[in-house]
């Protein structure tokens, strides 16, 4: 993380993620300050490529989505579709020369569900090596 410009993460998460209440969310905001933007979503399958693309364009250096465990989706297949979409989006951004690792998906585990904070930490850990995005609107 460079001193002058912190890497930022836009994190969408399924509302069924454990310990993801408004208060949990605010503690994460306190912890990471401006480095994180959190978006609870009713279903991870709601996140479409456009969300990632616009996020990278205007909001953050990295965008991730946390889904519920496989088989748990209230809409049956939302998380599976999220997975496919992330894959597709990766391809898109790679094709324009931006690293595909700027977006990602974390599927919670059925056996060992992890809380939002833990998952966020993991993701932060995961992306720490990335550089600030060149496409992110500098005037934001």
């Amino acid at each position: 993380m460079s001193e002058e410009k912190k890497l930022t993460l836009g994190l969408f998460y399924c509302q069924h993620t454990p310990e993801s209440s408004e208060l949990d969310r605010q503690s994460l905001e306190e912890k990471y300050g401006k480095s994180i933007r959190l978006f609870p979503v009713p279903c991870s399958g709601r996140i479409e490529p456009i969300h990632f693309l616009r996020a990278l364009e205007e909001l953050t250096d990295v965008a991730y989505v946390i889904t519920c465990p496989e088989g748990e989706c209230q809409y049956f297949e939302g998380n599976l579709w999220a997975k496919k979409r992330v894959q597709r989006t990766k391809e898109i951004i790679e094709s324009i020369g931006l690293g595909g690792d700027r977006i990602g998906i974390v599927m919670n585990s059925k056996e060992n569900p992890r809380s939002l904070a833990v998952l966020a930490d993991e993701i932060m850990e995961n992306i720490i090596h990335l550089k600030p995005s060149p496409v992110l609107n500098p005037y934001r």
């Binding site: 509302q15 969310r25 609870p40 009713p42």
Partner: peptide, 11 residues
């Protein structure tokens, strides 16, 4: 097409 409660609203 489905509908869902919005977690941001509920919060």
């Amino acid at each position: 097409i489905h509908k869902s409660i919005n977690p941001e609203y509920a919060a």
